[in-house]
């Protein structure tokens, strides 16, 4: 139907392109009736919700739940085969081997010294990376929240590394840091000597942290920026009228109101840091020696290089336990932060 100068003109339905598309979509969706109508008749409309989530549950079950259960079983078995039926049940032998240590601060006194080197390296990485990440992300978010020129451009710039694959990130940095890399070429051209950025334990640990921060900072900056923008502007106006300086405003308004967001950033980055693997695998592959061997890489190496799937699975159970504790802590602290 259409109206022109008060006259009603009858129009054949379905002649405009939009109308054709609408009808095609409607017809296509109508095909679903042939599938879902009989199911709904059988299970009733209340239970249809389960039907709709079933595909997702199946994917979760097959690709997440089942491998988790399989991993749990592998943790209590030994043998070289990857097939469960060919493996020997050994009880808690793998866990005992991992946890047997005369002095937990000295990996050389542990039965499975590489696991404890991984634990120690991961601890150092988590503390350093998360601290730097939160500081840099907060600083950047504060800068981007102000009326700086080219704000939109800089937001994109800081977010850009997040879009890159960790492998690409690591390859770019490797190109910069390797012995004949760009950074060393620059140092040599300035009359200096090549630095062993990826050949010295200390340097390597430093660079994997920096690369981790560089790659992820944009994501957390964005979260903090959203938190900053949710703080009501009138609070800042009030503090300005009261004569508060920038630091006082930050300490008394920004920081307290940003705490829930900061908390999210802290927990997310903490969990992600414990799971660090990809960029380190490409950048240093755990070296030099075991200086950047983290828990996940220890698990990978134990399973696929040393073919000890049982020990690797047991180590991943311990890692899962740590992550579970972190998640529980997040939930509890999150409730407390929300309550305050």
């Amino acid at each position: 139907m259409d109206t022109t100068e008060g006259n009603i003109i009858a129009r054949k339905p379905g002649t405009s392109p939009i109308s054709l598309i609408t009808r095609a979509v409607s017809w296509f969706l109508g095909l679903g009736d042939y599938i879902f109508a009989p199911i709904q008749k059988r299970v009733g409309h209340v239970r249809m919700a389960y039907v709709f989530v079933l595909p997702n549950l199946l994917i979760f079950g097959i690709f997440i739940l089942f491998p988790m259960l399989l991993n749990f079983y592998y943790g209590f078995t030994s043998g070289e085969s990857i097939l469960p039926e060919n493996r020997t049940f050994v009880g808690t032998e793998n866990l005992e081997k991992l946890l047997q240590c005369d002095n937990y601060l000295d990996p050389n006194t542990c039965d499975e010294d590489l696991f404890w080197r991984g634990v120690s390296n991961t601890g150092l990485y988590v503390v350093s990376e998360v601290t730097l990440l939160v500081i840099f992300a907060l600083t950047t978010a504060l800068a981007l929240n102000s009326n700086v020129a080219g704000r939109a451009f800089f937001r994109s710039v800081f977010f850009y590394p997040v879009l890159l694959s960790p492998v690409v990130v690591a390859l770019i940095w490797k190109w910069l840091l390797q012995q004949d890399g760009l950074l060393n070429a620059f140092i040599v051209s300035m009359g200096g000597e090549r630095a062993p950025f990826l050949l010295d334990g200390g340097w390597s640990q430093f660079w994997v942290i920096i690369v981790g921060v560089w790659a992820q900072m944009g994501f957390y900056t964005l979260i903090l920026l959203a938190g900053l923008q949710s703080i009501p502007a009138d609070l800042y106006e009030a503090s300005s009228i009261d004569g508060a300086n920038a630091f006082r405003t930050f300490r008394s308004i920004t920081l307290p109101l940003l705490m829930p967001t900061m908390f999210v950033v802290l927990v997310l980055s903490l969990i992600r840091a414990v799971q660090v693997f990809d960029h380190v695998y490409v950048l240093t592959n755990g070296g030099p020696g075991t200086a950047t061997l983290f828990i996940v890489q220890y698990i990978y190496r134990t399973a696929f290089s040393n073919r000890n799937f049982g020990l690797a699975a047991a180590a991943s159970l311990l890692l899962a336990l740590v992550l579970l504790l972190l998640t529980v802590a997040q939930l509890r602290l999150g409730r407390r932060v929300d309550a305050t």
Binding site: L199, T284, P288
Partner: peptide
Amino acid sequence: TPAEVWVGAGGS
């Protein structure tokens, strides 16, 4: 010897 080979290769 070039350290890249043994020291810089990580676990492979």
